[in-house]
């Protein structure tokens, strides 16, 4: 299983780089830090979904908050049948389904994103709504650590703790890099785990690129009997897999040339 997921992650990383080759507007570094997280969720049987019925009542709700960093979800959704693979060759082209930042017209996306700091609050509303309906589905929210600079995120963090939103699993892509610098040079938020615990969250910290750890972490949070909202603090590397991006504090705005994409893919192989 883990080997299979590792192979999927390699494939997703390559496919994401190939999307960036044709759509330079996409944020490649931000999309590479979440690959293992997305692979575990979608291929690791930890997220309920039905590609043929995206409004299926029994689906887990997956809310992407870091929109432009989720281009790596495109190949996954296509592979699983949410839309045809031909769409991957047309990202950002005239009339395409898939743009530089995903929108809710794309099958599989629950909400709008792009502007940061919105997903957790909406996720809290969905979570409480599901609880009120006595529904057993989970709400997953994918947030970037840079989004923690938005005040509205903390409004939601406090709300979730107060209301014991135990069906809410926040996955924090803690890649430690914003657009212009390392997060800690802008506002140092360490320790993130302690901050969430103070606000009455259950926290599990993992290596966000270790498929086993991510998988076990999510599984453990899903099965947890602790009556609190859950945080999977996934320590990741922005631009993971591409050495020139991994060490660059400006990786968020880096655009790779076709040659660089070739080199990056060759390096992955």
């Amino acid at each position: 299983m883990l080997l299979k997921l590792s192979e999927k992650a390699l494939w997703v990383r390559k496919a994401t780089l190939n999307i960036h080759r044709i759509a330079k507007e996409t944020r490649i570094a931000s999309s590479l830090s979440v690959v293992e997280i997305l692979v575990v969720l979608y291929y690791g049987k930890l997220l309920s979904f039905d590609p043929k019925d995206t409004k299926w009542e029994k689906r887990d709700r997956f809310i992407i908050s870091k929109g432009h960093g989720s281009i790596s979800l495109y190949p996954i959704l296509s592979d699983l049948g949410f839309f045809g693979s031909e769409q991957l060759d047309r990202v950002c082209m005239k009339g395409a389904l898939l743009g530089g930042i995903p929108d809710p017209l794309i099958p599989g996306y629950e909400t709008i994103n792009g502007s940061l700091g919105h997903g957790l609050g909406v996720g809290c509303g969905v979570s409480l709504g599901l609880k009120l309906k006595s529904s057993r589905e989970f709400v997953f929210v994918l947030l970037g650590d840079g989004e923690l600079f938005e005040g509205a995120v903390w409004e939601a963090v406090m709300f979730a703790g107060q209301h014991k939103l135990s069906n809410l699993i926040l996955i924090l892509d803690n890649n430690k890099v914003c657009m212009l610098d390392y997060c800690k040079n802008i506002i140092d938020l360490e320790s993130i785990a302690e901050k969430f615990r103070v606000f009455k969250w259950q926290v599990i910290e993992v290596d966000g690129h270790d498929i086993g750890q991510v998988s076990e972490g999510i599984k453990s949070l899903r099965e947890s009997k602790i009556d609190k909202p859950k945080l999977l603090l996934a320590n990741t590397i922005k631009g993971k897999g591409v050495p020139s991006l991994e060490t660059d504090p400006l990786s968020h705005i880096r655009i790779l040339s076709s040659d660089e994409v070739d080199t990056a893919i060759a390096g992955l192989s």
């Binding site: 909406v122 509303g125 969905v126 709300f159």
Partner: peptide, 21 residues
């Protein structure tokens, strides 16, 4: 639900609830 003095969260919570019907 009193979300507190948090109008931004008020709207987001409202959107989430309405997504659930």
């Amino acid at each position: 639900i009193n979300v507190g003095i948090a109008e931004q969260n008020l709207i987001n919570i409202a959107a989430g609830f309405s997504l659930e019907g």
